[in-house]
Amino acid sequence: MPEQMTLNKPEQIALNDGSAIPQLGLGVWQVDPAITAQVVGWGIQAGYRLIDTAEGYQNEEGVGQAIRTAGVPKGELFITSKLRNGGHQRDAALRAFDETMSKLGIEQLDLFLIHWPVPSQGKYVEAWKALVELRQAGRIKSIGVSNFNLDHLERIIGETGVTPAVNQIELHPRFQQRDIREFHMRHNIRIESWSPLGSGRLLKDPTLEGIARKHRKSVAQVMIRWHLQQGLIVIPKSIHQDRIAANFDVFDFELEAEDIKTIRGMDSPDGRNGPNPATAAFLF
Rank of each mutant, 00 (worst) to 15 (best):
K9F: 13
Q12N: 14
N16F: 02
T36Q: 03
R49I: 09
L50F: 08
A54E: 01
N59L: 08
E60Y: 00
V63P: 00
G64M: 05
G75H: 05
R90V: 06
A93N: 01
L94I: 13
T100Y: 01
M101H: 04
Q108Y: 06
I114C: 07
Q121A: 11
Q121G: 04
W128G: 01
A130P: 00
L134V: 07
R135P: 03
Q136F: 00
A137L: 04
D151A: 10
E154C: 06
R155G: 04
I157A: 05
T160N: 04
V162P: 03
T163Y: 01
E170I: 10
E170N: 07
H172V: 08
P173K: 11
R174L: 15
Q177E: 08
H184L: 13
R186V: 13
N188R: 15
I189N: 07
I189F: 01
W194L: 05
D205Q: 07
P206H: 12
S218T: 15
A220N: 02
W226Y: 13
G231N: 08
I235E: 01
S238Y: 02
I239C: 14
H240F: 09
D242E: 15
F251E: 03
F253V: 11
K261Q: 14
G274D: 07
G274T: 08
A278Q: 12
F284Q: 10
